[in-house]
Design a protein around this nucleic acid. Structure first.
Lengths: 300, 300
DNA sequence: GCTTTTCTGAAATTTTTGTTTCAGAACGAT
DNA sequence: ATCGTTCTGAAACAAAAATTTCAGAAAAGC
């Protein structure tokens, strides 16, 4: 299986940059070594110029791991590896052409990867600037309140995101319920909503009638509504207590949900933090169940 | 005796660059020290990053001379001097996209929104740098090839993303099939895979045994495997023809899939572009079906 | 020229860095 | 469950780097 990799290995020992060598040999690296590779990439190549001890500590691995990795990359030892880094640096310094920043570094600027990423960064920028952090905090507070049930609903496209959000919230706390707006059982879920419960709705372009209807019914029951929508705002926002809009335009025939995912993940992180005291056991139990079922692997 | 010089010395110990300090203290340097200073200026600052011995040899002076000089410049010893050089270098090299001050503009920097976003941007940066655009293009080519069936599988957490990917791809072209790794019907799907078909797998931390098994079986049938994984690399990568890794670490108890989503969306955009001629009708038909069912609202 | 002061590097010493070994942990196969 | 394999870091060890000491060389003063 690794037949061809051996050839690669021999090639990479010649005069590629250290970064390239890491790239090329990445498959062959072990878990700890990959962690080290990651640490090395932050602030590359300066990060590798300290002592082997410093580098190891930085990457939270042992010094032998460092030695093993640089050997895999084709160097005789750490000093040789460091010398290579220094040569690279020298070349880089002496060539002060302030090259326009490119995301996928070896791809031309007009490559879809660069164009798309550029747009997404811009979306993040513009969307985040609009978020009121107090509203955000308030939303997290609601979601972390164990006395409230939380219902989560997404549309046809945003279903993936609502699933994702549901899954995390469900691990963090009890009383979280997914609603499937697509099948027509959803009115049953409304029955279970009490005043002061929370409904999280995601409704993006191609706003869905069922989501609007659900929001309306929920509001009548005194449910607090948190809405994730796009930059134009779903009609659901009429009923929302708090609403977060993300810019979704990218050079594509389709919209981008990256910003919404970012907001959700941030919210999950914060709710987790707030809930920690109430439900720390929950996670530990979950871990244990995973271990017991051995369905998932911890590493490698 | 050095009464007035002490004052100078104190001034220069603050936070000037090493070059400045040499400049300021040049008068006070002895012959051998000036020779050293000269050597240091050639190829500054990289020249100072080796060992004290190397530097001394380079400048043709003794190591004690080096120590004495760096002390005169206000450093406690050679290592401290070198650390200063490294910091300078870091600042010089480090990303021209200077850290953006604050994302959620009215929130304090330490607000979760800003912290989290900062981490995500960093993840994007580091992950994209690692993507080989030729591999990316090749993957898009496979996915756009109408003669191949495409199967998509995700794990417990990454299911949401695989759904999302499936949904888009399915709109773009025919012959796209989701696989549910969780339920034990998935071996049935394997039956339908022919050589040269494509399997897209998403396997992130907490790598799942069923995904690995599926990858192996698929490979035996000559299926091309495209893998999305995290920075450590799922064991599935052993079987993958192309693999894309995203950095997923954020200040949270959970991992971030933002980068993976970004990669997927970019890929969807590109596949769409490539498939346009083959399946332009498909989208139009879809539009019409939506209109007929009146399930979605175009505006407001 | 002679003395005093300052400067310099060889060599000894201390500290740190880099490498190797090895036992235990995690993993993978059965 | 168990057994062989691979991976990992603690600790021992070797190598080197950094510092200090000190005697002799160079420079300055007289």
């Amino acid at each position: 299986m690794y037949g061809w990799l051996n050839a690669t290995e021999m090639m990479t020992t010649s005069n590629d940059s250290v970064a390239d060598r890491i790239q090329d040999n990445f498959e062959r690296l072990t878990r700890a070594e990959r962690q080290l590779a990651g640490a090395l990439r932050e602030n590359y190549p300066v990060s590798g110029l300290g002592s082997i001890t410093t580098l190891a500590e930085n990457a939270q691995v042992s010094t032998p791991t460092v030695v093993r990795m640089v050997r895999k990359l084709g160097f005789a030892g750490f000093p040789e590896f460091q010398a290579a880094l220094k040569r690279e640096l020298e070349a880089k310094i002496s060539n002060p052409i302030a090259k326009h920043e490119s995301w996928a570094e070896n791809a031309p600027d007009e490559h879809p990867l660069n164009q798309f990423t550029e747009a997404v960064i811009d979306n993040i920028h513009q969307s985040l600037a609009q978020v009121d952090h107090e509203v955000f905090d308030r939303a997290c507070g609601l979601l972390a309140d164990p006395s409230r049930q939380v219902f989560i609903v997404g549309g046809r496209i945003s279903r993936s995101l609502s699933d994702y959000f549901y899954m995390h919230l469900q691990m963090i706390r009890a009383g979280v319920h997914p609603i499937n707006a697509a099948n027509n059982n959803w009115p049953h879920s409304i029955l279970d909503m009490k005043a002061e419960d929370v409904l999280v709705a995601i409704d993006m372009r191609r706003y869905e009638n069922s989501t609007i209807k659900m929001a309306e019914l929920a509001q009548e029951r005194g449910v607090r509504l948190i809405l994730f929508t796009d930059q134009w705002g779903s009609p659901v926002s009429k009923f929302a207590d708090m609403s977060f809009s993300s810019k979704i335009s990218v050079p594509s025939a389709w919209d981008s949900l990256v910003v919404t995912l970012l907001l959700m993940e941030t919210m999950v992180a914060d709710v987790q933090r707030r809930s920690w005291n109430n439900t720390r056991n929950r996670i530990e139990e979950l871990e244990e169940i995973f271990d017991r079922t051995r369905q998932f692997r911890k590493f490698t």
